[in-house]
Structure formats: structure tokens, C-alpha cells
Design a protein around this nucleic acid. Structure first.
Lengths: 392, 392
DNA sequence: TGACTTAATTCACATCGTGACCTAAGATGG
DNA sequence: CCATCTTAGGTCACGATGTGAATTAAGTCA
């Protein structure tokens, strides 16, 4: 609608078609040049030229032949997993985990740093990340010239921009310029995003969201968030803080949420909210550990427990219904440890609750599935940020 | 993320740059070639070439010169308003209105057909539209070869696709293939969308949403809807039914909505819902006409009326807060006749209610404004669908 | 009137994608 | 073992495109 610096020169063309081919090979498995002409719409000549360049640069490699019946056999091409490496970092409540992946997303090395409760200073986290980068590079024997970048999943809201800034209540981070802190210790390209979003991204690339152009990954853990994909691209909004589904209001004037507002979805379906509601209903929370406690609650057959679970399903269904009505996705993936715990037992009820709260038409055009990846996917998802930029 | 038929040839380049220049001229008012090089990022040579083509085709025309201080004066260029015309159609509860615009969106002719209550057969509506097209073409003396197309705003959900299909409860339309019906009477390109969305589009192009890349137009009338713009493009979701904000749940287990669900936003802030709540609270609805009745309610100083209005503001604020949290827009425009009625008196309270229900960060990055266009903008917005495709 | 300034156009050049044509590499049948 | 056929992939000339440098156009100012 408005003007701006859009695409122009003839060189961008090649860059674009290169990316198209690369993506086709990355997501479409090994393929012959012949098949690529079909799937990309490019001419055979161009495919030949571009793949020639990519082969010469070592970005892709030949991967055997396909038997023929009476003609020259097709040579399969695939992305060279060792052409580049990406590091994914999971900054969580209890640890900083640094993992190194090759382009095929095979883990090559890992480093773990425990965080003591209430010791989440940004400088400490940054030191851990930098140390972790050195460790995994050394462990895998990968030179930094082969590194495509480092993706980092952090809690809280990430304000994207030239100098990304992180706001993380639980860490006591206010406007922390994590990138600037790391920049003093490394020259690698850095990609920072919300950890829930990176987890959702992993689910979209390698999990239950594979192949969807319009999808929503709903992440329910202690907190609640969502990764919204429109036209195969994560929606970030004007400043990158889009998708704060957990703090949408589903009960005006309802329960107080830790964000300060009333009636947030998170206050009802986040693990903390569920356990809190159970306690208020007179139930006894089984453990100090949220995960153990929630699992126990789900096993509990007492009327109080069952009512709380039922209510949780209703609220979560309403939240999912809202996503369906607003985004009209073709697929919804429910993930996060609490979401998986609840969904494994009550997926049918959850679908039914979503159906009740969504319009019939968009509901009929979507499917609600459980995530296939565990909570460990944060680092993997963070690494996909790097690969995503590489494929562009 | 997935492969598909993406852009490729060198000809697309020119098409793209042509569109870039055209958009810059359309939205950036008259501009010289010199200025265009700056605003589009293209080289002076290319600007010269492309504008040369556009001038030769009559798409743009020269528009005077700008005085110089010691150099060759700049020649201003602008889109030729008479190069093409677009028809916008507003299919409403009480009428079918057909308007003809030139490219500058000046109205050139108009035709109006009253609809009797409960007489909304698709065939009748289609006949009115076709008749209206003939009438406005004749009235304005425009040949159909100069027509860029017809945009149509209809109530209900429009399922986009090769053969768009309309679902409109209030009209008793179920899967009505309006395009196919019209296709029998005209060869003009047809663009069909929800009327609220077309109204929002008008607001975005010519009203309070001008220039925003990420915006939401919230439309509150008898029903409630939203037009969501991401990256300067209306978001339509997988099948075009995205943005059904009115039927998102803001009160789990709350008031029954006409869609059948419980606790929809529309049940609280739609004109019907507001008046219904007032009646339930013991108030007397002043008129049979919703608009008169709502206006009276807003003037009423009785405690009951004030409580209903206050509640409405709270619910609408929660709904706006949800949009802010999910979409992180830079601007929110509140429109629709009921929204304007409410907003003119209570905008500050509305902003405050939204603030209470949104996260501080995204709330701080958005502004909430009132729409500048009246409800008559449906046809104008429908015509922008045509122009949008022309600018591409 | 002549020097200067700025806008717009022209031109040679490099790059790109493409269709037509050619080469590579296998199977098949004698 | 060889000729023929079939399919995959590469090469080449061509037209289209954007760009920087040079050129032309059209003013102001002293």
C-alpha cells in the first residue's frame, strides 16, 4: 500500500530463484534437476545453471542416481548437510542450553549450563551462551567460518528491530539488549526470538505443522503463547511482539493474571493457573514441581479435579476457537508440556470445546493436532531461525 | 517454507517495478521522476524507462512542473484518473448500491435499488447488481473497455477460491456462488469480499488508517468484524474467512450470541447485543430502529443506561486489547456506525479499557483512533479491491 | 549573454531466464 | 558387440532488464 525500498535489480532475480531451488531441495528431500524444473516452475536451463553454481560452492551435493528405464538416469541432488552449521540456544528458567546442528538439523554437539533460581542476570546468561558457543564449536570440530549463525530462544517478549531488546518478567529483564551483550564476544550472525515461538517454529518445520501455509502453534506450558504462521511465514507484527495469545481476555472481569490484567487465557489454562484454580476449589496440589503436580491432577478422579480439568478444556477450547475465527488457519498444533499433557488425555474434548466456540465454517477447514516434538525443541527451533535466513 | 510456483523470469521484474512505481504515484500523490528514484530505490534510468512506458500507455500523465532554483524544473507525474474506472457495490440489508469511480476514487455515477425486508434472494441481488452496472456505465458515459472491474461488498463470510462462495445468515444465503450468477451477465473482472472488510479497506486507504503497514480496523455495527492488515495487505487466512473478531469469546459461558455460541464479543458490543443487555437490565429501548435506539441510549443519563454503556466500553476494550496482543498493530481504527457512535463520546474510556486488557509493550506501540469515513464507505472500499489489483 | 545547476534521457554493458539444440548415459534388440 | 531409442542434463544465442556514466534539456543568476 505504501512505497518503500522494494525489489528491483536483475541480481535479486537470481538470488530469489536460488532461494526457491534451495528451499525445494531442503524441504522436498533429494530431487533431480528434472523434478526441480517441475516443482519450481523454472526452466531446465536455469535449473542447470543455478544448481551448477550451488554445486561448485558446495552448498548442495549429488546424492546418487535413480534407476532409469531406458534413458539417462536422473542424478539426485540434496543440500550438503556439512556446508554450514547453526547453533540453537535455549535460555530457560533452569538452564542455558547450547546445541550445534548441521544443515540437516542433526545435533553435533551440546553444552548445558544450570541456572540457579533467581540468578538470571543478563550478563551471566550472555557469558554462558558465549562459553557454550566455544565449547560446541570445539567439540564438533567446526570452524567458525562454517557457521551460519546463532539462534537464541528466550522467555518474554522480544522487540525486534536494529537493536533487539528483550522484556522478560520472570527473569527480571527490562529492555535487555542481549544482542549487544553477545556482540562483544562473537561475530556470528545472531537471531533472537521468543522461546515459545522458536519451539513453534520447530513444530512447523519438523513436527505436526509440516507443510501448512496457514497454521497456528498454540503453546501451553507454565505460560501460554502462540506462533502464528501466515503464508508460510511467522507473523511478528509491527515490532515483533505479536502472538501474545496467553494474555488475550477470555473472561472479562475474571481471574487475575500475573500480567496484572483480569481474565487472561493464561490465568485459566497456564499450568500455574490450572493448579491455582484447583487449590482454590479445595484441592491439594500434589507437588512443588508444576509438571508433577499437573500430571497428578490429570490422573485424579475426584469431582473437584475433574471439574477443574473440564473447565480448563473449555477455556482452552475458547482460546483455540478465537484463533480459528481470527486467523482461519488450516491447522492448529497444540504443544507445550502442559498442552501435551492435557491433550494426550482430552484431545477429543478439546476439539469439541473449540468447535463450540468457533464459527462452523472456519472450524470445518482446520484440524487440531497435538505437537510431535517435546519441550526440548526450543533450541532446535532457534537453530531454524538461522537456517531460515540461510534459505533466503 | 514449502515450494511452489514462485517468481522467476526477467519479465516479472519489470512488472514488479512497474507496480512499485505505480503505487508510489498513486499513494504518494504527484511526484517527479527525481523523487521517484528516491522513494522507490530504482535508478534514474529505470524510472525514466518505466514512466516512459506508462506515459505512452496513458496510465499516468504529466501534472505541471515544480519551480526550480537554478536548474531544470521537475516535471510532476500522476496517475491518470481517467485511464480506468472501477465499480463498487454495497450489498446491504436494505439496498443494493452500485457506484462508479475513476482511478482517483471520485464518484462518477450511482444507482440504488431498495431491498424489501426478507427479500434477499441471490438471483434478485444479482439482477440488481447487473442492472446497476449498466446504469452507471451509461450515466457516466464510460465504455466497458475502460473498466478495470467490479468490487462487491456483501454481508457474511466470503469463502475465497476459484469459485468464491458466500455464507450470509441474515440473508439466508448458504454457499451462494454470487460470482457465477453475475458471470452470466458480465465479463468484467469481479472481486467479492465481506462488506465490513471492504469498509475497513476504504478506511485504510483513505481514512484513519492511511500509511499504516500493520493495522486493524475494528468495525462495530449491528454485527462486529475486523479488517486486519499485515505488511500492508489484508489478511485473509487460508480460505478468506479470517478476521471474524465479533465471534471471538471474551466471556466463557457468557451471553448467547446469534451465531449460537456463548460469550462472543458481538453479543456484548454489537448494537443488538447492547440494546438487548439494556432491555434485560430493565431499560426501555427508545426505538425500533437500532441506530436511533443506540443513540438515545448513549444520551440517556439513567444509572441503568450508564452501566450498560460502561460495560460495553469494557468489553470492547477487552476485544481491542486482544487484537493488540495478537497482532501487535501500529494503529487501530474503530469504525462502523455503532463504533463511531460510542467512540465519539467515550474514546478516552475505550483507550483506557484497552490498556487494561493489553500488555503494556504492544499497547504502547499502537494508537487507537476513530474511523474518518462513514458507513457509506462500503462501496468505496469494494472499488479499492479493483484498484488494488490494478496496482499489482 | 555566459556560467552554473538540476532534471531527464541515452547508451554501452553486465546479468538473467529461456527455447532450441546438443551431448551424456543408460536400456533394448538384434 | 553394435545400432537405435529414450531420457537427463548442458550449451548457446537471444531478447529483456537495471545500472552507471555520459549526454542532453531546461531552467536560474550574475
Amino acid at each position: 500500500m505504501m512505497s518503500g525500498p522494494q525489489r528491483r535489480t536483475v541480481r535479486d532475480l537470481r538470488r530469489g530463484n536460488r532461494a526457491v531451488l534451495l528451499r525445494a531441495l531442503y524441504f522436498g528431500g533429494p530431487a533431480s534437476r528434472q523434478e526441480l524444473t517441475g516443482s519450481t516452475g523454472l526452466s531446465a536451463a536455469t535449473v542447470s545453471n543455478v544448481t551448477g553454481d550451488l554445486l561448485a560452492e558446495g552448498v548442495i551435493v549429488e546424492a546418487g542416481q535413480v534407476e532409469s528405464d531406458g534413458g539417462r538416469p536422473r542424478v539426485l541432488l540434496r543440500v550438503n548437510p556439512e556446508h554450514g552449521y547453526a547453533i540453537g540456544v535455549d535460555v530457560g528458567e533452569t538452564h542455558v542450553r547450547v546445541e550445534l546442528f548441521d544443515l540437516a538439523m542433526t545435533e553435533r554437539a551440546k553444552a548445558d549450563y544450570a541456572l540457579r533460581p533467581a540468578r538470571h542476570e543478563a550478563e551471566l546468561v550472555a557469558r554462558h551462551i558465549l562459553a557454550g558457543i566455544d565449547v560446541v564449536l570445539a567439540e564438533a570440530g567446526v570452524g567458525s567460518e562454517r557457521m551460519l549463525g546463532v539462534g537464541i530462544g528466550v522467555p518474554g517478549i522480544v522487540e525486534q528491530g536494529p537493536g533487539p531488546v528483550i522484556h522478560a518478567q520472570t527473569f527480571g529483564w527490562e529492555s535487555v539488549p542481549l544482542e549487544a551483550l553477545l556482540r562483544q564476544g562473537t561475530d556470528l550472525p545472531l537471531f533472537i526470538d521468543n522461546g515459545a515461538k522458536t519451539m513453534g517454529q520447530a513444530e512447523l518445520w519438523f513436527g505436526a505443522g509440516r507443510g501448512a501455509r496457514h497454521a497456528v502453534v498454540a503453546l501451553v506450558g507454565s505460560g501460554v503463547g502462540a506462533n502464528i504462521v501466515t503464508d508460510s511465514d511467522t507473523y511478528r507484527g509491527a515490532t515483533g511482539s505479536a502472538g501474545e495469545w496467553g494474555h488475550t481476555t477470555v473472561a472479562v472481569g475474571g481471574r487475575r493474571c500475573r500480567c496484572g490484567s483480569l481474565g487472561c487465557l493464561e490465568a485459566y489454562v497456564g499450568a500455574e493457573g490450572v493448579l491455582g484454580r484447583y487449590a482454590e476449589a479445595g484441592g491439594t496440589v500434589a507437588s512443588d514441581d508444576e509438571q508433577t503436580a499437573l500430571a497428578a491432577l490429570l490422573e485424579d478422579d475426584s469431582p473437584a479435579a475433574r471439574r477443574v480439568v473440564e473447565e480448563t478444556v473449555t477455556f482452552l477450547g475458547a482460546g483455540l476457537g478465537n484463533l480459528i475465527n481470527l486467523f482461519n488457519p488450516e491447522r492448529i498444533v497444540v504443544g507445550g508440556w502442559a498442552g501435551l499433557l492435557l491433550g494426550r488425555r482430552h484431545l477429543a474434548a478439546l476439539r469439541e470445546a473449540a468447535r463450540r466456540h468457533a464459527l462452523a465454517l472456519p472450524y470445518g477447514q482446520t484440524t487440531i493436532e497435538l505437537g510431535e516434538l517435546g519441550p526440548d525443541a526450543v533450541a532446535l527451533g532457534a537453530a531454524t531461525l538461522v537456517v531460515e535466513s540461510f534459505l533466503r
